[in-house]
């Protein structure tokens, strides 16, 4: 039998050997080279993605570590004064009284009105304020209100019985507040960058906060650290 096989091989070796080589090569291609190459290409994509993510996270960590915590807390305090997470009626009433007095008006009444009105992406509640004073100072009051440490929008202006002694003025104001965002960003989400315009805005807020009396302008009520 063995001799017969050897004889058969010797007779057809010119065909058998190339066939064996072809089959072996095919086997290697199908079961080793092709799958490994495909995995290599996929792996290259994953590796470059991971490398990119790693680089991004490293940059993010560096950026976060370079942030001055105290300065950031101060800036957050200013923006939360301007747009707090809660309505904070007490501070609003104190602020309105202060601004009207500074602008040369006396407050007859302040009434808190409709709450939960949407103003852009923020919420707002209405305040109706009746004041008395010279109409000449009204523009100053309106400007003070809309440039106050708290975001206030004038919605209705109603001036009646204007005479030389003064005028009865009713103002309907929208006071803005906005809940804290639910998503503060995942680990791999890009870090918000403060532009020069943002820095300018913070400087403006700081200026407003320092020029208005400290009794109401400094700290928002509620938790000292809203993220805890």
């Amino acid at each position: 039998m063995k001799k017969e096989i050897i004889k058969f091989y010797l007779e057809y070796k010119l065909y058998i050997f190339p066939a064996v080589v072809a089959l072996s090569s095919l086997f290697l291609i199908i079961f080793a080279i092709y799958p490994q190459t495909a995995k290599l290409i996929d792996g290259q994509k994953s590796a470059s993605q991971l490398a990119g993510k790693s680089e991004f996270l490293e940059t993010k960590v560096q950026a976060l570590e370079s942030v001055d915590g105290e300065d950031l807390a101060r800036k957050v305090r200013f923006v939360l004064n301007a747009l707090p997470a809660e309505k904070d009626f007490a501070n609003v009433l104190a602020l309105l009284q202060q601004l009207t007095a500074e602008s040369g008006f006396s407050v007859s009444s302040i009434a808190l009105g409709n709450s939960g009105t949407k103003m852009g992406n923020s919420d707002s509640f209405d305040v109706r304020m009746e004041i008395r004073g010279s109409k000449v100072f009204l523009q100053g009051l309106l400007s003070n209100l809309e440039n106050s440490p708290r975001l206030i929008r004038v919605k209705v202006i109603d001036i009646s019985s204007a005479n030389q002694q003064g005028a009865d003025i009713a103002l309907s104001l929208g006071v803005l507040y906005s809940g804290l965002p639910k998503d503060f960003g995942a680990a791999d989400s890009p870090l918000p960058e403060l532009t020069s315009a943002d820095e300018g805005l913070i400087a403006a807020l700081e200026k407003i906060n320092t020029t208005t009396p400290t009794s109401f302008a400094q700290s928002p009520r509620g938790k000292a650290n809203p993220f805890e």
């Binding site: 942030v67 950031l72 923006v79 301007a82 923020s122 503060f184 943002d198 805005l201 807020l205 809203p226």
Partner: peptide, 23 residues
């Protein structure tokens, strides 16, 4: 720190629309 920065940016975007802009 990231949450504070996100909050700061989020608030500044709203404040920018209103502060110093007359109604």
């Amino acid at each position: 720190t990231q949450a504070s920065l996100t909050l700061l940016k989020n608030r500044l975007q709203v404040i920018d629309q209103y502060l110093g802009v007359a109604s």
